[in-house]
């Protein structure tokens, strides 16, 4: 009880500092993809606080209690469901062969792979793709979008935020457990915990490598999205030496 109250107070304090910072921060000549930098930095600070008191401990606990085979199973289970999203978005992007590959994976992993707990398809040589509606929007022409940082959800762009909403609503997990809201929400949240847990080892690297952690995370996110949009083969950016 005491604990949750102190936590609440800490979060409120963080929110307050965040708002003050966003009021004060007017950074000229920043990244052209980051017009809301003041707001984003404030949300980033809030998220760092939340991560410290809640998200990271949950991920660490999850990392600690789940043995590797279980974790691999969880990862495979969700990536099997994600193959529906991959197939859908590959279709929307006109990559029919890839979409067929994703459907084949879904079929094999849901049956031979026992409801997706084992990724048999990868061993058969059917490559796992990584598509979402944000990427589809980018392929459809919305290629540059302003950066937005959300607490808990993390780095996104305006485009990818809209994409995420579509992704969540097109995810069958959202509908299969309609009767129990708690169970459904936990199932929707579990992949986020799984992803956060997988990022635990890189925390230290980012902490050590960055001169400005916010800018480091932002630019890494934007680069990674660009890589995903181009399916792992983005044209090299201009080297900007002149």
């Amino acid at each position: 009880m005491m604990k949750s109250r102190t936590m609440k107070r800490r979060v409120t304090a963080l929110l307050a500092t965040g708002l003050l910072m966003s009021g004060g921060a007017a950074l000229a000549q920043g990244n052209p993809n980051d017009p809301y930098e003041g707001f984003n930095r404030a949300m980033f600070a809030v998220n760092e606080g939340l991560d410290e008191v809640a998200i990271k401990p949950i991920a660490q606990a999850y990392d600690f209690v789940t043995p590797l085979p279980v974790r691999a199973g969880v990862g495979d289970f969700f990536s099997n469901i994600a193959d529906i999203r991959n197939a859908l978005n590959n279709t929307l992007q006109g990559k029919m062969a890839d979409a067929g590959n994703d459907l084949g994976r879904l079929l094999i992993n849901s049956t031979v792979g026992i409801f997706g707990l084992f990724d048999v398809a990868s061993e058969l040589g059917l490559e796992r793709h990584d598509e979402d509606f944000g990427q589809t929007l980018a392929v459809w022409g919305w290629d540059n979008s302003s950066f937005l940082f959300w607490p808990v959800v993390g780095p996104k762009t305006v485009r990818d935020t809209g994409g995420l909403v579509v992704d969540i609503y097109s995810d069958p997990t959202w509908y299969t457990l309609n009767k129990s809201v708690a169970a459904r929400n936990s199932l929707v949240a579990l992949p986020f915990v799984d992803v956060r847990a997988s990022l635990l080892p890189s925390d230290k690297v980012v902490e050590e490598a960055a001169l400005d952690k916010y800018a480091y995370v932002r630019d890494a996110y934007l680069q990674r999205r660009r890589n995903q949009i181009f399916d792992g083969r983005p044209p090299r950016l201009e080297d900007d030496l002149d």
Partner: peptide
């Protein structure tokens, strides 16, 4: 060197430019 599409080198560009400014 590029990890998951993130260049370890160019990822510093904005941070460095900020310091130079």
């Amino acid at each position: 060197v590029t990890v998951a599409g993130i260049s370890l080198v160019t990822n510093y560009r904005d941070q460095f430019a900020q310091e130079v400014r």
